[in-house]
């Protein structure tokens, strides 16, 4: 197969677009690397070399001594597994030769992140954190307090994320709201151990995905992206704690460090 310089440039652009989408929507580095390479090779390059860092990808395609290199910044678009699934499906279809380069490009450009109805997510997150309160040994009144505390925090979190506020500010404010609502339950002694609601209601703000991605990046050899994700997740945890402490200082309710 012969590849003109223009065709090689086009191939590189398609491959980098796929990598960029994966990176922006929270795929781990190994998946970004593998999928980009597979798409590039399936489109006719001899090899694809890429460097994934925490906020950009650099990719070079090689074909008979010709190199084409391009860089894309990857701004965080929030975790979206549906986009990751779709890019991977396009990659598999390309490898089975069901699509050609133009079709792949068109399909990648057409991908739109699917979002669940926000109120449905609010209710589900309320129930999720309320279920965590059950694991901590809470009774039904605590379950109800936790539901309202975490649902309130989730509404604020979505609203601030929608307006592109800084994630650290967002998480601190949401933790403040969750703890403040939950401490109403403590003040009025709603249920047997109302302090449980304080602990359970902020669990919607645990950066679980970045933490798991961080460790799995490090395990699979992408040390620098792993460290960057780890630091980001740690900073989010610190912001949440600042929000909790501020709320507890203002309301005078304590429930975290007393065993």
């Amino acid at each position: 197969m012969k590849l003109t310089h223009e065709a090689q440039t086009e191939l590189t652009r398609i491959a980098v677009k796929a990598g960029q989408i994966l990176h922006q929507h929270g795929a781990e580095s190994r998946l970004v690397e593998q999928t980009t390479q597979r798409i590039g090779v399936a489109l006719g390059a001899q090899s694809i070399e890429l460097s994934v860092s925490s906020d950009a990808i650099v990719i070079t395609s090689l074909f008979e001594g010709n190199c084409v290199t391009t860089t894309r910044r990857c701004y965080d678009r929030g975790i979206n597994m549906q986009m990751v699934c779709d890019v991977l499906r396009i990659c598999v279809m390309l490898e089975k030769q069901l699509l050609d380069a133009a079709q792949v490009k068109e399909r990648l450009a057409r991908l739109k992140p699917y979002k669940y109805n926000r109120w449905l997510v609010v209710v589900m997150i309320g129930f999720s954190c309320a279920s965590f309160s059950h694991f901590f040994g809470g009774d039904w009144p605590v379950y109800i307090t936790t539901f309202f505390a975490s649902a309130g925090a989730m509404i604020l979190r979505q609203e601030l994320a929608h307006r592109h506020h800084n994630p650290f500010v967002n998480f601190a404010l949401s933790a403040f709201v969750a703890t403040s609502i939950a401490s109403i339950g403590v003040i009025y002694q709603f249920g047997d151990k109302p302090q449980i609601a304080l602990a359970a209601s902020v669990l919607l703000l645990v950066p679980g995905f970045p933490l798991i991605n961080a460790v799995s990046d490090i395990l699979k050899g992408h040390i620098s992206t792993g460290i960057a994700r780890w630091v980001f997740a740690t900073m989010l945890t610190i912001s949440v704690s600042i929000g909790i402490v501020t709320s507890m200082t203002l309301t005078g309710v304590s429930g975290w460090l007393s065993p």
């Binding site: 929270g26 975790i79 979206n80 597994m81 549906q82 986009m83 699934c85 992140p113 699917y114 979002k115 669940y116 449905l120 997510v121 589900m124 997150i125 129930f127 999720s128 954190c129 279920s131 965590f132 694991f135 919607l204 679980g208 995905f209």
Partner: peptide, 15 residues
């Protein structure tokens, strides 16, 4: 445990 798994899956926009 199934409830939070689904709840957080929806935050991650799992299909």
């Amino acid at each position: 445990a199934a409830v939070p798994a689904v709840g957080f899956a929806m935050v991650f926009n799992v299909p």
